[in-house]
Simulated scan of single mutants.
Amino acid sequence: MSSVAPLHSPRYDTARLQACGDDVFISANVEIRRPQLVRVGSHVAIDSGLYLTTAATIGDYTHLGPYLTVIGGAQSTLLVEDFVTIAAGSRLICGSDRFGGEGLTSVTVPEAFRDAVELGTIRCARFAGIGTNAVVLPNVTIGEGSVIGACALVTADTEPWTIYVGVPARPVKARPRAKMQEYARRLGYLIE
């Protein structure tokens, strides 16, 4: 029997989302700029301070920690698969100016005068984890079971079941998978 008291914090109005599963807690202290482009699975917790400007799909048994920033606008996407954790303070940059000097930088500048913009998708595959204050750049896939260490900078796709640290992020260790996959099977998920 658990002795942990249930949370009674104010909650975000999930009816604003495109879709939302069961057993979901989203803090009232979040800013989801385009809720009609956001789908949330079941057994999800999204803590205070999330700032989300992109389309997003959030899988089952997922936790998005406090003060997470996901930017890139309506033409960019965040895909978070099942059993993923993204820790406090991380920055997922799904779209950004390239800052190459081809034009002015800022979403407030008319498009004819803007620098080149990179828009895309960040995908966090099943069982992935992103440590606190990590930064992930546009068009990166965090591979299945891959973990990104605290304060790392991810500029390229990561290999499955590998731990990455540093700036830029580099692989340092393999991560075991059997127990996590077995637990997911026991929860009713098909795992290859």
Rank of each mutant, 00 (worst) to 15 (best):
Gly103Met: 07
Gly103Pro: 08
Leu104Gln: 04
Leu104Gly: 03
Thr105Trp: 00
Thr105Gly: 00
Thr105His: 00
Thr105Glu: 00
Thr105Lys: 00
Ser106Cys: 05
Ser106Val: 02
Val107His: 15
Val107Trp: 15
Thr108Asn: 03
Thr108Phe: 05
Val109Phe: 01
Val109Asn: 01
Pro110Gln: 07
Pro110Trp: 10
Pro110Val: 09
Pro110Met: 08
Pro110Leu: 09
Pro110His: 09
Glu111Trp: 12
Glu111Gly: 09
Glu111Phe: 12
Ala112Val: 11
Ala112Arg: 15
Ala112Leu: 11
Phe113Cys: 03
Arg114His: 06
Arg114Phe: 05
Asp115Gln: 03
Asp115Phe: 01
Ala116His: 15
Val117Gly: 00
Val117Thr: 01
Glu118Ser: 14
Glu118Ile: 11
Glu118Lys: 10
Glu118Trp: 12
Glu118Gln: 15
Glu118Asn: 14
Leu119Lys: 13
Leu119Val: 14
Gly120Lys: 08
Gly120Tyr: 10
Thr121Cys: 12
Thr121Leu: 09
Ile122Asn: 12
Ile122Trp: 11
Ile122Glu: 11
Ile122Gly: 08
Arg123Lys: 14
Arg123Phe: 08
Cys124Asp: 07
Cys124Ser: 11
Cys124His: 09
Ala125Gly: 09
Ala125Gln: 09
Ala125Lys: 10
Ala125Met: 13
Arg126Val: 10
Arg126Asp: 15
Arg126Met: 13
Arg126Tyr: 13
Arg126Ser: 13
Phe127Tyr: 15
Phe127Thr: 14
Phe127Glu: 13
Phe127Ile: 12
Ala128Asp: 06
Ala128Ser: 15
Ala128Thr: 13
Gly129Trp: 02
Gly129Asp: 05
Gly129Cys: 07
Ile130Trp: 02
Ile130Gly: 03
Gly131Arg: 03
Gly131Met: 05
Thr132Trp: 06
Asn133Pro: 03
Ala134Phe: 02
Ala134Val: 05
